[in-house]
Amino acid sequence: MTPLDEETGPSSPADSIRLGVWGLGAMGEPMARHLLTARGSVTVHARRERPALSEAGALWAQTARELAAGTDAVLVMLPDLPQLEEHLDGPDGLLAGIDGRDFLLMIGSTVSPVGVRDLAGRLPDGIRVVDCPVSGGEDGARAGTLSIMLGGEPADTERAAALLAPCGRPVRLGPLGAGAVAKACNQMVVAATILALGEATELAARSDVDPAALWELLAGGYAGSNLLESRRDKLVAGDDSPSGIASYMVKDLRFAADIAAATDTRPALLPALRAAFDEIVERDLGERDIAVTRRFTAERSAD
């Protein structure tokens, strides 16, 4: 595990690279803002234009081809690989804009490690791929404190680290796909923690124990975590208005199961987590915040 903290100041080689961001959702937009602030120029592309970003100085690309034509490296913050692949080819696709140049494609989406390696193998020579999923949620994206998990060739991950440093702490974890493996491990812990927090909050409330007092007390012990700090108020209030939606966890846990199968790992907890989040989606709760685990527990208890 190698921390890569190269600065992106005026003297850095990364400063001369024209950078783009594709995908301006809950994570992509604040990351683009940090990159714009650090670099002074970023080209962005998404399904819908973000006028506030343009007003701040970002350059808007109408198509994936236009994005690639005006950049040397692109950070992709789309939900998964299919959303990227459907815009690779064709007259307005990313590859048409790259047009045979050397290019760095940084995939920040949560993806399958097998899938990202397969994609890299099908791309033209000269296109270097780094998988760089992030952890820290919307709070971390806004604060610029994300954990950025890098997989790829050393020279490529070094360049990606220099470019992405304004968004958090980049760490090289191994060859292409290593970032995706790390993100799957991260999501297993997040899923287990938020499910336990939801169940414990509901259990306390049904036992006439004040959940706010409970978590205020336990936050300073082994039960404390960044996730508890982030979701405590939501859990206590029963507020699961969307932020990091629960249905995304289904895909993430599927990737974790694929990795377990590929490495002959026999986890005991992962199947239970998959079953729980599958049930959350089946109960039409998947578009709620992951703090919906409290509501999920209450509904199951009422059945």
Rank of each mutant, 00 (worst) to 15 (best):
T2E: 14
E6Y: 04
G9D: 15
D15N: 10
I17E: 12
G23W: 07
G25M: 05
P30Q: 06
A32T: 08
L36N: 02
R39L: 11
V42K: 05
E49M: 14
L53N: 08
S54L: 15
E55W: 08
E55R: 15
A56F: 05
A61P: 00
L67Y: 07
L75R: 02
L88M: 13
D89P: 06
P91C: 09
D92A: 13
G100R: 07
I107P: 01
T110C: 12
G115V: 01
R117E: 14
D125C: 12
P133I: 10
G137H: 00
G140R: 01
A141S: 03
R142C: 03
T145Q: 08
L150D: 07
G152T: 03
E158C: 08
E158M: 08
A161N: 04
A162P: 07
L164E: 02
P166W: 00
A180C: 12
A180S: 15
I194Q: 03
I194T: 06
L195V: 01
E199P: 13
A200E: 03
T201F: 09
T201M: 08
W215H: 06
A219P: 01
G220Y: 06
G221M: 05
Y222W: 13
A223E: 05
S230N: 11
D233A: 09
L235H: 02
V236E: 01
A237K: 09
Y248L: 15
V250R: 11
V250D: 03
K251Y: 07
A256Q: 00
A257N: 04
D258R: 04
I259C: 01
A262R: 03
P267G: 12
A268M: 10
A272Y: 02
A276R: 03
D278M: 11
V281G: 04
D284M: 05
F296T: 00
